[in-house]
């Protein structure tokens, strides 16, 4: 990488993936992924199941290891260097399909754990920050309950608040609404929309096409481990170029 490109990547580019490949044993899951995400950009990734969407975003914070190519997050290249991995994970928040809240800790403790242990924030300060974010996701009154006592939608909002407590510069969402009952999807989406409106860099794997239309700057379609098409939402939905995209859209928008 040239010096100029380096400077640019530190200023405007949040994530850069160059020629990335990944295999699970013999199985080639991700093939030649190239993707640049600018700061403040909101990206929705969609595609049929098994197309490698989740695997791709999980490579960004190294929950999965890539075998070829480069991933540069916030100006830091992901290698086997544990220190760099931890550095990136501190700046990249992630929300999972199954929430993955810590069931043995209260909502408040879930939110303060990482700031206290990773960022060494004093407890009182961490709690104040946590309450601020719990208010933002509209559940401050649940702070002292355990995750098992909350509904799915509430748990997912806590998970979002937990990530935000680390003040991440990038947020990854891995199918955040797929495990929710239908009546709870909108409360989570609303939280995500308000986050997007504040200029957070977001990559979101989702099947919520309504969300994609409202907030995405760019929609990425993946199939069989490849990025097939990238386009702004209006273009993507109204005038999809590839046949596979057209087929996918006709299938998921069939009932809409």
């Amino acid at each position: 990488m040239s010096e100029a490109a380096k400077t640019q990547s530190q200023n405007d580019v949040a994530i850069q993936i160059i020629g990335m490949h990944k295999w699970y044993g013999e199985f080639h899951v991700l093939k030649d992924i190239n993707l640049t995400v600018d700061r403040g950009e909101r990206i929705v990734v969609c595609g049929p199941s098994g197309s490698g969407k989740s695997t791709m975003i999980r490579c960004i914070n190294r929950l999965e290891e890539h075998q070829q190519g480069q991933i540069i997050v916030d100006g830091i290249e992901l290698t086997n260097d544990v220190k760099k991995i931890d550095e990136i994970r501190r700046e990249v928040g992630m929300v999972f399909q199954h929430f993955n809240l810590f069931p043995h800790l209260t909502v408040l403790e879930n939110c303060t754990l990482a700031p206290i242990w990773v960022r060494k924030t004093p407890k009182a300060e961490a709690e104040a920050t946590a309450m601020k974010f719990l208010e933002r996701v509209k559940i401050p009154e649940q702070a002292l309950k355990y995750p098992g006592q909350l509904s799915g939608g509430q748990q997912q909002r806590v998970a979002i608040a937990r990530s935000l407590c680390m003040n991440p510069r990038i947020m990854l969402f891995d199918e955040p609404t797929s495990a929710l009952d239908p009546e709870m999807i909108s409360e989570v989406l609303d939280t995500m929309i308000s986050l997007a409106e504040e200029g957070m860099t977001m990559i979101c794997v989702t099947h919520e096409m309504g969300f994609a239309k409202t907030v995405a700057d760019r929609v990425i379609f993946m199939d069989a481990g490849e990025i097939i098409e990238q386009a702004p939402p209006t273009e993507f939905f109204e005038n999809p170029q590839s046949e596979r995209t057209q087929l996918f859209l006709s299938q998921i928008l069939h009932n809409a």
């Binding site: 990249v92 928040g93 993955n100 754990l113 680390m166």
Partner: peptide
């Protein structure tokens, strides 16, 4: 313990021992 617990902990920046 579900795999997601370790993943969530890692994604928050916690090290192995933490």
């Amino acid at each position: 313990i579900p795999k997601g617990q370790m993943e969530a902990a890692k994604s928050l920046g916690l090290g192995y021992w933490q």
